[in-house]
Amino acid sequence: MPFVVISGFPASGKTTRTKELLEFMKKEWPKNVVVISEHDFVKDQDKDYTYSSSQVEKDVRGALKGEVIRKISKDDIVILDGLNYIKGFRYELFCISKNCRTPQVTVHCIINPEQAWKWNESRPESQRYSRAVFDGLVMRYEEPDSRNRWDSPLVTVQADDLTPAEAVLQALRAAPAPKPNMSTQNPMLAPTDFLFELDRRTQDVVKAIVSAQESAMEGDQLPVTGTSERYTVPSTGRLTLAQLSRARRQFVSYLKTHPADPASIPTLFVQYLNNTDR
């Protein structure tokens, strides 16, 4: 389940680092090690065509992201080999990690642009970037920053360095799995009749309170149908039907986006009334 994101300029040695990481991890990691390569999604069309069209490039990123979602599993290491040069895309990958509760490490391949260009020129012609596309990607590149939670922990490797495979593995083992938050979790699915039950049960609570408070004094605790929770008559006096109806509408609006067990609705509504300034 640990996730490694490789990032760097074009022709910065990312694929070489990925292969060396793969060989090392296969020996050290007890489960599978999976590589997802950007090259596999660009191979049917040349690099210049892909990175000269924002829509085609966006489609490639979408395919990579989908593949990451499919390949992340409970125990496997997933290595994503690609430019991954857009900060927002790396954040999206981080959200996938958060949702899966898996540690993520970013490996930044650092190289001088001119040296990267020389490496690019030494490749077979079919694998090269044109100068215009190369310069455009370098200009648009957003470097990983360890201060960003989606880039941390960050392992950097210079062009002449050995691949820091051991450091990457240690970072994966030491990094805590990020805790998912509301933005990365699937919302709770409500029963198909939830809205009907929400409306009916809150209406019943309002009717019960209107009826019970006819003979009640401030501070009295009134029983309410459907719950053991008691409604406390406020010190400001009994609430009118209009006031209770307004509070009910506010409560219903909230619960529409935060579904709960229908059986708990009367209890939650009474608690809401007791704790709302009235």
Rank of each mutant, 00 (worst) to 15 (best):
T163M: 13
Q203M: 08
E142C: 04
R147M: 13
E114L: 00
N148M: 12
D145R: 03
A171T: 04
K87H: 11
N181T: 13
Q158Y: 05
D160P: 01
F194A: 12
W119A: 01
N186F: 11
P124K: 15
P153F: 06
Q203V: 04
V155G: 04
I110N: 06
Q170M: 08
Q127W: 10
E121K: 05
V168R: 07
V157S: 08
L93H: 03
L80V: 11
E92V: 02
V168P: 04
F94C: 05
W117F: 02
M182F: 14
V155Y: 06
A159N: 05
T102M: 13
F194W: 10
T184A: 09
W119H: 01
S183N: 14
Q203A: 12
K98Q: 15
T163Y: 08
N186Q: 13
E125P: 00
Y85L: 07
C100R: 15
L198R: 10
V138L: 00
I86Q: 10
H108I: 01
A167K: 14
Q185Y: 06
D160A: 13
N186R: 14
D81K: 05
I79N: 06
H108L: 11
S130V: 06
C100V: 09
P191Q: 13
Y85H: 11
N112F: 01
R149V: 14
R140A: 15
K98Y: 02
N181Q: 10
A175R: 11
Y91M: 08
A175L: 03
E142A: 07
W119Q: 01
T156R: 14
W117V: 00
L198M: 10
L83F: 12
L162T: 11
R101D: 09
G136K: 11
C95Y: 05
Y85K: 07
F194H: 14
N120V: 00
D160K: 10
E143Q: 10
P164V: 09
K118Y: 01
L93A: 04
P191I: 13
S146L: 05
L195Q: 14
L83Q: 06
A190G: 07
L169R: 09
G88Y: 09
I111C: 03
N99V: 03
A177T: 10
P176T: 06
L83C: 02
A165W: 03
E142V: 05
R140G: 14
N99A: 15
T156M: 12
A190V: 10
T184H: 09
R173T: 08
K118M: 02
L172W: 08
E143P: 00
P144R: 06
S97N: 09
T192Y: 14
N99Q: 15
R200I: 11
N84P: 02
Y91T: 02
V138F: 00
D81V: 08
L169E: 05
F134P: 00
G88F: 09
F94K: 07
Q127Y: 10
T163L: 11
T102W: 05
V155I: 15
E125V: 10
W119F: 03
R140Q: 14
P176N: 08
I111Q: 00
E143V: 13
P144Q: 06
I79M: 09
S146T: 09
T106P: 02
D160R: 09
G82W: 06
K179G: 05
